[in-house]
Design a protein around this nucleic acid. Structure first.
Lengths: 110, 110
DNA sequence: CCAACAGTTCTAAGATTCTCGAACCATTGA
DNA sequence: TCAATGGTTCGAGAATCTTAGAACTGTTGG
């Protein structure tokens, strides 16, 4: 039983992040909300649930995949669950100021 | 013949800009390139042509519409042509730092 | 006036994306 | 060891986006 052993998912290197992919990943309301939530700190997958908690696991997992493949998020196995975390530093290094600007943005109705 | 008369297109107010819409508009390579080009200054529609100049008018027009409806771009009639310009100030006011971060971003291969 | 021009809008086909149930896979508690 | 848990992956239908030709509109030069 190696610590933090198997079931690793693929994560792109910061140098390979593609701007349009990041923008696309963040352009979905559900994914944006997940991102905002993760700005507070890492969460297990189930806790990423955007509103209340009614979207199916597979859908949530798919959104996380989109975020992960763009480089917005990291998804690491942790026991029988997984920790999802924002790749703040990598994003900042690759696209300075971008994530900060997105997180700072006020929602539309004030 | 009023100066700058007819054929006005609809433009959303800065206060009504929606973040996900802006991000989505910028998440397409062609639209991002148009945006970058416009950062240098206003252009007539035909001059927005991303690469060389082989994409059809209707496609270009459609991309400009997406950018315009998100609030990224302004499209004003000017004689028989139109001037397309970046809504820098409105975007900066609504989403501080966002456009700057996007324009500053380096392309993927270095 | 009329033809050429600059662009938009309409329409339709093809490609992506979204959503979600079902099947599947490690990991761990009992 | 075995079943429950936490999530991912697969597959398919619905929805949305992209692309582009064709038709249409306002504007201007001759």
């Amino acid at each position: 039983m190696q610590p933090g052993s198997t079931r690793e998912l693929a994560h792109p290197d910061a140098a390979d992040f593609v701007l349009t992919d990041v923008l696309f990943a963040l352009s979905d309301p559900a994914r944006l909300e997940i991102t905002r939530r993760l700005a507070e700190g890492p969460l297990e997958v189930a806790a990423c649930q955007p509103t209340g908690g009614d979207i199916p696991k597979s859908t949530l997992s798919h959104h996380l995949k989109t975020l992960r493949e763009a480089g917005v998020v990291r998804n690491d196995p942790h026991g029988r669950q997984r920790y999802v975390s924002l790749r703040r530093d990598d994003l900042e290094q690759r696209f300075p100021g971008l994530l900060a600007a997105v997180l700072r943005a006020a929602p539309t109705g004030e």
